[in-house]
Design a protein around this nucleic acid. Structure first.
Lengths: 327, 327
DNA sequence: CTAGGTGCAAATAATTTGCAGAGGC
DNA sequence: GCCTCTGCAAATTATTTGCACCTAG
């Protein structure tokens, strides 16, 4: 398990501020291979087991340095000593901590993050890091029965799974939006655009689902593992609201504008989230999806311009069209 | 300042599990008078200043006991030592912690709380306590200029202020809802009910605003102090959604049902929040408001029943699609 | 009378520091 | 050669414990 996980390039991770060092690399190496939250002393033990002659103080000093360098993050579960975790994978994440078995499990929540940002902004506070810890009793300690978990070895997979789930939900909602928009658009060209987008969504949906199935195949338990990434907006968000607006009745132009707005928002979201993470399948999914959304938006924008132009031409008498291709 | 803040009854706070004790009361007393987050040693210093002959160990033991007894809460700001805060005032609250000046400031957020609950539920985790800490730089450290703060002496006032603000926002939104509902309701009796409710909202709104002004008069800076209680749903929540639905067009019966739903939700929220806190003006506001919402809901329910009854009587001549309400 | 509370000093535990020597640039 | 890193041991800091003594019920 796990030792074969691709480690990030040490040179990249170790920023300026210290000498090349030999021992540091040793310690860093051992540290990065771990998947649990280590205490300084546990790390010391591990290091000494691999190579004798490294002092405890050095481990402490190296940990300090790793934290200031941003390679490691210090977490405090209230045990009276600090634990450390590599920070390269998920820049921000939060913890569920079982008061009984002392194990911790991680999660991401873009909803919590944005609330925190809002609150900080309201207080004119410049946030640098936030800690969210939910203490309580885990399912296993409560019911006794063992349930699939997310450990270091599976985090990547689960993250990818959740990214895909979000993308699929958004895609579904987009498909519904475009289908509805196509059905109600009067302008022929506009309708064609919506139909084309609906088609693309359908196609891409199929791709995503295939990819999802492939991912699932990598770990038979993957689907039953707990949610890692919480985000309420994916399915119930932009496109759903857009479809809602369509239902109330709008004209062709408005439908296009709504579509543009949805794609823009969706693109922003996926891009922002995708950029937050280190290389991984999940990041990939986010970024690809962001790209697709932008392409769609561009298409809609072109169509919107064209519609306006044709309307303008019609409204006046007839003028020579200037086929301006945006990009 | 501040020593005259009414202290909660010691007998109530000190639960079974220990002897009457004399020193403990001393320590507890000093502790409860404080408004800052004390470290064990700081408390020891304070206690020894008031009465010599109390050992450091006793302070530590008493703090431990206070925590298990639920009188105090242990907070960890990552300084390598624990701090403690009395837990009687706000059962749950979170912290903004300035990494520069090491001061911390508190906030409440029902939004964060509910997200946390959702996440815990999704993970089948039974949460008991949650910690949210936002580390960063406070406004004062960043800009140098001093801004009004929330300290122990003003927390109660600010909490009451925010409770009132929420109530006022909800009331406003309710007023709009009922005004709109009254305007579009065809049934005379139903319209009268909506008008009456609109009237009540208007009246209560005036009361709340008066109360708000009185509160503000107690502290000239009160209005400019930062937000303590974050809750997005108050103004933009239930009633606003309800009004939105009205705008889309509904019949009398549906309008009543929407009203009932809004009042129910609103009542639940204010009740739940009101129950969470120790005696204070803010709690008062929440509970009173909860009561009012329930009264309104009851009125609407009665009216709804009456309408159904009357419709039943004239069933054959009226076009009455009976919207089945599940839930 | 007796269980639990208390002070003091000593013990732990986690982490830091002083200092002489080693190693990278 | 200079400056930083490193190991070791000693120091510091926060907190706990052992133990003889006290006090409320």
């Amino acid at each position: 398990m796990g030792t074969d996980r691709p480690l990030p390039d040490l040179a990249t991770l170790r920023p300026a501020g210290g000498k090349r060092s030999s021992k540091r690399d040793q310690i860093l190496n051992v540290f990065l291979r771990q998947q649990a939250h280590l205490s300084a002393d546990e790390l010391f033990e591990l290091v000494r087991r691999e190579k004798a002659g490294i002092g405890r103080a050095t481990v402490y000093r190296t940990l300090q340095w790793m934290v200031t360098a941003g390679v490691a993050r210090k977490v405090d579960f209230g045990e009276g000593r600090s634990r450390f975790e590599p920070s390269y994978r998920h820049p921000r994440h939060f913890h569920l901590i079982c008061a009984n078995c002392h194990r911790s499990s991680e999660f991401l929540s873009s909803d919590v993050e944005s609330l925190i940002e809002e609150i900080a902004a309201a207080r004119h506070f410049a946030p640098s890091q936030s800690v969210v810890q939910i203490f309580g009793t885990c399912e296993e300690c409560r019911t006794g029965k063992q349930t699939p978990t997310i450990d270091g070895a599976t985090t990547e997979l689960v993250f990818a799974r959740d990214a895909l789930r979000m993308a699929i939900a958004t895609e579904r909602s987009g498909l519904e939006f475009y289908t509805r928009a196509a059905a109600m658009t009067k302008d022929v060209r506009g309708r064609t655009v919506f139909e084309r987008l609906a088609g693309e969504e359908r196609e891409h949906l199929a791709t995503l689902q295939k990819r999802y199935r492939e991912l699932i195949a990598q770990d038979p338990q993957l689907e039953s593992r707990p949610t890692f990434l919480f985000f309420k907006g994916a399915a119930s968000g932009l496109f759903a609201t857009g479809a809602e607006q369509l239902r109330k009745g709008v004209n062709d132009e408005q439908a296009l504008l709504i579509g543009i707005e949805c794609e823009r928002g969706s693109h922003e979201f996926f891009k922002r989230y995708g950029e937050r993470f280190e290389d991984s399948e999940g990041k990939q999914v986010f970024l690809e999806f962001a790209d697709e959304e932008r392409a769609h938006r561009d298409l809609l924008v072109r169509e919107y311009r064209s519609l306006r132009e044709r309307q303008g031409r019609h409204r006046r008498s007839r003028r020579t069209p200037i086929a301006k291709r945006a990009r």
